[in-house]
Design a protein around this nucleic acid. Structure first.
Lengths: 256, 256
DNA sequence: GACTGTGAAAGGGTTCACAGCT
DNA sequence: AGCTGTGAACCCTTTCACAGTC
């Protein structure tokens, strides 16, 4: 025990913070770029810049994985690529099914980033019988009747839902019943799943709405000083006891 | 300071937490559903369930917007729809351009959720001259030479990038130079933008990798007890001074 | 009685700043 | 000298629990 001791308080590979996990793919991508350019080592500063984060955060993130750097030198690119890949579970192959082969589903099937890094599109599934057999991205679409069989035959544990909103929960239920435990949902719905099943959501319209919020903010800033956005609101309140439309004031409903 | 009436500490419509902003679209969607079914009021409990959050969080979120509920009763659906829409800036129309009309761009153009709620696809832009004029989702694709003109003619402030990764930064720079201040980026790249420009990123492969991490976790749990995922790691270290692959153990680089 | 609005407590995540190693 | 690894401070977010209002 001559060294600095602190035996590492059992918090090693257990309990990597979620925020850190979400950034690992980012680091991995940056590292892959460096690897392709045969860069042997990077400092936290350089890598952080390439990944678009600050270096303190990156160092802390890596510290959760272990001590993979060398003081005074930096990180070995190849070694880090391997460690992060392993931590993310990308050293194994993940068969994935995509359900709902409309515009978006087809785009996903064709997306190169899917195929690389451990993910393999095991099947494309659609409810439309007319689509069955049609090749999309080189894979024949299968009818959703086959869903359960496909899942179990291929040992699929990750499913992607790109159906219309109305079908998503139903598809989700079938995926889960068939053994899928991770779902990436592109349909604009809240999916309910049993404990132990992970759902991640990608929602285009939500992202746009968040941008619109900040955009409006910026626009309001120019005409600053007076609280602009509150100012032009109609003076109606919801309080049933008081005034709610009795005075011909618009209830102000959005189109849809 | 006796207690009682804190006069609302000037933190009214200023400074809505980012986490809250990100959930407003979720609430809005749930409320729209209720509105279509002509439900007049909801409790925080009901609405929270529909939006997939817990009710305390929802109430706190709404408290940042103002006091829009009625104690003992709940929230007036129509009124809340209006207030949230206004807060998000959806009572005005946002022209949006989509740059990069490949599979994904086309899917986005066709996505219904775009058109509803204040967003209007003002133009589709692609670098391929062969695509110019081709109608996608009822809109003729325009060549990227026109980008600057399109932006300024239509007063576009929100741009969507669905180009390949290699083109994204360049497209981003042109969008920003032309006046766009909010960007939704689907390309797997870190975009650098000047201050004052917002970027949101949607990255399919990152989402999958996060799922894979948790999936691997679950798999490791079954064979629990011993720290499985660390256990099978090859005992190589990056320290250039010490051992680095000398023992024929794979450096294990990802394919790409 | 029912349900909102909100202080206060608890929990994560980020940033700082520096000790410690090479 | 240079750069990592990390306690400690700080900040943001979530949750609790209850006073306040209808």
């Amino acid at each position: 025990m001559a060294t600095g001791r602190t035996h590492r308080p059992a918090t090693r590979s257990r309990g990597i913070p979620e925020a850190t996990v979400a950034r690992l793919p980012l680091y991995l991508r940056a590292l892959t770029g460096l690897s392709e350019r045969s860069v042997p080592t990077v400092s936290s500063e350089e890598l952080a810049a390439a990944a678009g984060v600050n270096s303190a955060k990156l160092r802390k993130d890596f510290s959760y994985l272990g001590s993979y750097g060398t003081r005074g030198v930096g990180y070995d690119v190849e070694y880090l690529v391997y460690q992060i890949s392993r931590e993310l579970g990308l050293t194994q192959d993940w068969p994935v099914v995509i359900v709902g082969i409309g515009n978006l589903g087809a785009a996903l099937a064709n997306y190169g980033g899917f195929a690389s890094r451990g993910f393999r599109v095991a099947a494309l599934i659609d409810a439309d019988p007319a689509m069955a057999g049609t090749p999309v991205a080189g894979i024949a679409v299968q009818h959703s009747d086959e869903l359960e069989k496909i899942i179990s035959d291929n040992g699929v544990s990750i499913g992607v839902i790109s159906t219309p909103a109305g079908a998503a929960q139903q598809v989700c239920d079938r995926l889960v019943a068939a053994g899928v435990t991770s779902i990436l949902n592109f349909a604009p719905t809240v999916l309910s799943v049993p404990d132990g099943v992970d759902v991640r959501k990608v929602d285009l319209s939500i992202e746009l709405q968040i941008l619109a919020f900040h955009e409006q903010r910026k626009a309001g800033e120019e005409a600053a000083g007076n609280n602009a956005e509150q100012a032009d609101a109609p003076p109606l309140r919801a309080t049933p006891a008081s005034r709610k439309g009795p005075d011909g004031d618009v209830p102000a409903v959005m189109p849809a």
